[in-house]
């Protein structure tokens, strides 16, 4: 069984007097160590898909399974717990840190809700910052970090919970292409041996170019790139083949 399984998801939002269908009978399986890249235009439903997969929103139909448990039928508290420990982390580009807190505190703070003291939480926070190559900014206030440095701290804040699935929404909002290349290489390297599954959804192809599985999202559906044999041949060719058959 897959680590994360989205089964026949449908999600609608009200629009005018009717509604718009953002996800329609959409299914996706993600295994441990997987690296999935989802390409989609603006407003194609990428953010909705990731939020539903992370348990932040419920679908109108269909189910989300994580490690054999149906998240869509869990209580909100249990779903929220999955975002805290060994569960599903969601990194989005709208992360807004407290301006004056140093990076290490940003990463340590979520662990306090797990019952750790700030003193205890600092050690795993350091480890998470090291894992994303951001330990050198541990004591720098968030307001003084660049956009790409902030994204790394936000990533550490998610990794400190040691998630098994990392969902990344639109990481392409970086000022310099070189920052992007480094971040995308980091995201790729986070998976692999650790078994962390990474799913990146982006309007830009740069963040997903090295994904093991590529797919596009549009009209509410996911289209995998590894499915073969749906191209319809020329009618003449089909006719010729039929004629040649005994």
């Amino acid at each position: 069984m897959s680590l994360l399984s989205l089964e026949h998801l449908t999600k609608r939002f009200p629009e005018g007097r009717g509604h718009t269908t953002v996800l329609e009978d959409l299914s996706l399986q993600v295994d441990a160590g997987d690296f999935v890249g989802i390409w989609g235009m603006r407003r194609s439903g990428k953010t909705t898909l990731l939020r539903v997969a992370a348990g932040r929103e419920l679908p109108d139909a269909g189910s989300v399974w994580f490690d054999g448990h149906e998240m869509t039928s869990m209580s909100p508290d249990r779903r929220a717990a999955l975002q805290r420990r060994n569960g599903i982390g969601l990194l989005s580009s709208d992360w807004r840190p407290e301006r004056n807190n140093p990076a290490v505190e940003h990463v340590a703070l979520p662990l306090l809700s797990d019952g750790m003291s700030l003193h205890e939480a600092r050690h795993p926070a350091w480890k998470a910052l090291e894992r994303v190559g951001a330990a050198q900014w541990a004591h720098v206030p968030a307001a003084r970090l660049s956009q790409s440095e902030r994204i790394r701290v936000a990533l550490a804040q998610i990794l400190v919970h040691e998630p098994r699935v990392l969902l990344v929404d639109e990481p392409a909002v970086l000022p310099r292409p070189s920052d992007g290349a480094e971040l995308f290489d980091l995201l790729r390297s986070l998976g692999g041996s650790s078994g962390l599954a990474v799913v990146i959804a982006s309007e830009d192809i740069a963040p997903i170019r090295k994904a093991r599985r590529l797919m596009s999202l549009g009209s509410g559906k996911l289209r995998p790139s590894d499915e073969r044999g749906t191209l319809v041949p020329f009618p003449e060719r089909t006719a010729a083949r039929k004629r040649s058959q005994p």
Partner: peptide, 17 residues
């Protein structure tokens, strides 16, 4: 269906590049 196949071809080219 041809658009689907063309899209897969684009992804394959992205992978190779």
């Amino acid at each position: 269906r041809a658009l689907d196949a063309y899209e897969r071809d684009c992804f394959e080219m992205l992978r190779r590049s």
